[in-house]
Design a protein around this nucleic acid. Structure first.
Length: 736
DNA sequence: ATAGGGTTAG
């Protein structure tokens, strides 16, 4: 246009400036601003107002305010100028500052406000939760007739909804004579966000039935509603409907959809959505970095929750390091912590701290790192994170992080530290209480766990299904059979909680340990539930403890029937046969496992040291100090034999002669870890070992004797609970 | 000028 010799007028500039704001491109915008000044158009209010908005949209708050001030000095501000600067502050998240300016505009300068001014102030009331002031504005709008404006009506509905006054919002919505798609969307999203998704869906259906206009916001809101409730398949279904209606999904739609795929672990649809994102949403030139990053972060999250940690990591690595934001780091760390290798999570977290750059962990990141520590029982690392939290306290996020700390300390074997964190919490919820109860339960302090349960109820918190799972677990690991049965009855009668498979498994476990296998079997037969593998596993392990071959075989056959015959069930059955000396049957199982391709998961133990953890597999000889480790072990075994230790070969699981069996036993990963712990731990300090599977019976007996002759307490966490070996006895008292 | 989105705990 300029090249053709045409001259822009004051109608042209606002359009050009608007485009700069939408890009947004501060460079273009300020270039036009300079051009405007040079050509004398800066005397025009219309143009100047557009400059203010442009700077605001480009995030240049200072420039915007400077422009406004200059106009103010020149005395050319009109209502639009005021509205513009107020809106600039609102949109950048400074609602309070915007509201202050609005008050000056009306009180000090007596500017006659219009509909846009009202929408601005309603927006501020909504985001600051100032419903009283919002109500005044509502009254003003009714008096002046501005309520008829659909924009005003929508803003009032939204204000009430955001202030949690759904009844008021509904009333206003129903009284609006003219409604548009925004009005309906405001109601749909409000219902969805307060958890009343039924009403949200009902409105959505009504919109469709009456053939109202549905836009991308409507569809995205419904997809997000399903996704947030873990209904990924329904979310995908709505996405299909959206496509068949020729609505074009955008970034928000895809991010919602991906979180739906993640929540149900649907890798296939996740990949499909990834392809769609590449085709239609991700910008080719990387112009829209913010939006792209959100989609990429959602993709990383989806891939790790769908057990594709490597793909997730590749995407993470593909983001330029300076472009990764805190969410990118958090989803990757959280992905490793929960669905992958927890060690990788801690490795990545350390990297994040080391980069002394702009990205600092937030409460989400810390929680994810603590989850990883809890899984590994990485007490030392967990303590460091605790110290970091103390240095960078953030009140508003304290509850979540503190709960993670309680869980981490409980699961890492420092129940006293868990208690200290719990006692110092400003706020507690049901998760805080149950985390502590789990800790005591895992350590075999059933009575303490139940005491906390009583205190929890006294504190006014209502126990739910998870709480009772923890209660029953605590009872079974402390041999409190009658209490456990009583709680099991109470939970449905007094608290109206229907027991699920997990609760039944706990009770079967409880009865099984106590040797009341017939009662356990009767309970299974009378169960009003679908057969579930964990229930048969519980029975099977009860049979293992009491050497009941017949019932064990039955439970195993049920597991195979349910097609959940994993290595654990075969190992248990094999243990039962071995205990009964039925070596032919042991061999049969071995060949069956070979035949069906089921491999015994390798046992693996790791021990906490000053320099981090050291891991051992069965028969591991890869360690530098291997020779010393085996020497220490051999020496210990020789020394405990005179005190009464007899190697229990039934745990060796191999149909080989006794001499060889004894060799295999002494190479179990937990024994190697203990020897290494003795080698490297300072005298008197406890040795902390973690094992991925349950501790082997022979190792348990050996550890008990060893604890008589060494100067360390041995604290071992296996996949079932904690064992504290001290002075010739173990805290588990046989309940493991 | 009004409506929608990603990461955390038992």
């Amino acid at each position: 246009m300029l090249r053709l010799g045409w001259h822009p007028d004051h109608y042209t500039f606002p359009f050009v400036l608007k485009a700069c704001g939408e890009l947004p491109s501060l460079r273009c915008g300020s270039a036009f601003h300079a051009f405007i000044c040079a050509s004398g158009f800066d005397s025009n209010v219309f143009v100047c107002n557009a400059v203010v908005s442009m700077y605001g949209r480009c995030g240049a708050l200072g420039y915007a305010h400077h422009m406004f001030d200059e106009m103010f000095q020149r005395g050319i501000c009109d209502v639009v100028s005021w509205n513009s600067i107020v809106a600039v502050y609102m949109q950048r998240g400074h609602a309070e500052k915007g509201l202050q300016l609005f008050d000056r505009m009306t009180a000090d300068f007596r500017i006659r406000i219009d509909a846009v001014s009202l929408v601005n102030v309603l927006f501020a009331c909504a985001s600051l939760g100032m419903w009283l002031r919002g109500k005044e504005v509502h009254g003003y709008a009714m008096k002046t007739g501005l309520f008829e404006d659909v924009f005003i009506g929508n803003a009032i509905v939204d204000m009430y909804a955001k202030c949690g006054m759904m009844e008021e919002a509904k009333k206003v919505f129903e009284r609006m004579k003219v409604k548009d798609v925004v009005s309906w969307n405001a109601m749909v999203t409000a219902y969805s966000q307060i958890g009343n998704f039924d009403d949200a869906l009902a409105l959505f259906e009504k919109m469709r039935k009456e053939k109202m206009e549905l836009n991308v916001v409507t569809w995205s809101a419904v997809i997000a509603g399903y996704a947030q409730r873990g209904h990924g398949y329904e979310a995908l279904d709505v996405f299909r409907q959206m496509q068949s209606c020729n609505s074009k999904p955008n970034v928000v739609t895809l991010v919602s959809l991906l979180s739906g795929c993640a929540s149900v672990g649907d890798l296939l649809h996740g990949k499909e959505t990834h392809c769609y994102a590449i085709r239609c949403v991700l910008s080719v030139d990387g112009n829209d970095l913010e939006d792209d990053l959100q989609v990429i972060n959602a993709l990383i999250d989806m891939y790790s929750k769908c057990k594709s940690a490597n793909v997730a990591r590749a995407m993470f690595d593909a983001i330029a390091p300076k472009d990764r934001n805190v969410v990118s780091w958090t989803v990757m760390i959280g992905g490793y912590a929960q669905h992958g290798e927890a060690n990788d999570a801690l490795e990545l977290f350390s990297q994040m701290l080391k980069r002394d750059n702009s990205v600092k962990p937030n409460a989400f990141t810390i929680s994810c790192a603590l989850v990883a520590c809890a899984r590994l029982a990485a007490l030392r690392f967990g303590r460091q994170i605790h110290a970091y939290v103390m240095r960078n306290q953030n009140e508003s996020a304290a509850l979540f992080v503190d709960n993670c700390l309680v869980d981490m300390y409980s699961k890492s074997g420092d129940i006293d530290a868990a208690r200290v964190v719990f006692d110092n919490m400003q706020q507690r919820n049901a998760v805080s209480w149950t985390s502590l109860m789990t800790g005591y339960g895992m350590h075999g302090h059933g009575h303490e766990s139940l005491k906390i349960f009583d205190e929890m109820k006294k504190a006014g918190l209502v126990p739910d299904g998870v709480t009772f799972l923890v209660v029953l677990y605590a009872c079974s690991h402390s041999g409190m059979v009658d209490q456990g049965l009583a709680y099991f009855n109470d939970m449905s009668k007094e608290f109206g909680i229907t027991p699920g498979p997990g609760h039944y498994a706990c009770i079967i476990d409880l009865l099984g340990r106590a040797g009341r296998l017939d009662e356990a079997m009767k309970l299974i037969e009378g169960m009003p539930l679908k057969q579930s593998p964990i229930i048969w596993m519980a029975l099977l392990s009860g049979c293992r403890i009491h050497g009941n071959v017949e019932l064990g075989e039955y439970a195993a056959s049920k597991l195979i029937e349910l097609e959940s015959d994993n290595d654990g069930s075969y190992t248990l059955l094999s243990n039962i046969y071995a205990k009964a000396g039925r070596w032919k049957d042991v061999a049969k199982i071995r060949s069956l496992m070979k035949h069906s391709g089921i491999k015994k998961r390798p046992g693996c133990s790791w021990v906490q040291g000053k320099q981090g953890t050291t891991t051992f597999f069965v028969g591991d000889r890869t360690h530098l100090d291997s020779q010393k480790i085996y020497e220490i072990l051999a020496d210990l075994i020789q020394r405990i034999k005179p005190v009464g230790y007899v190697p229990d070969t039934s745990f060796a699981l191999h149909d080989v002669d006794d001499e060889e069996k004894r060799g295999l036993l002494s190479e179990h990963s937990e024994k190697l870890a203990l020897a290494y712990g003795i080698l490297t731990t300072s005298p008197g300090a406890p040795i902390r070992i973690t094992k991925n599977l349950r501790i082997c019976g022979d190792c348990h007996s050996a550890f008990t004797y060893i604890s008589m002759i060494i100067d360390h307490e041995i604290i071992l966490r296996d996949s079932s609970r904690f064992h504290h070996f001290k002075e010739g006895s173990c805290s588990c008292g046989g309940y493991w």
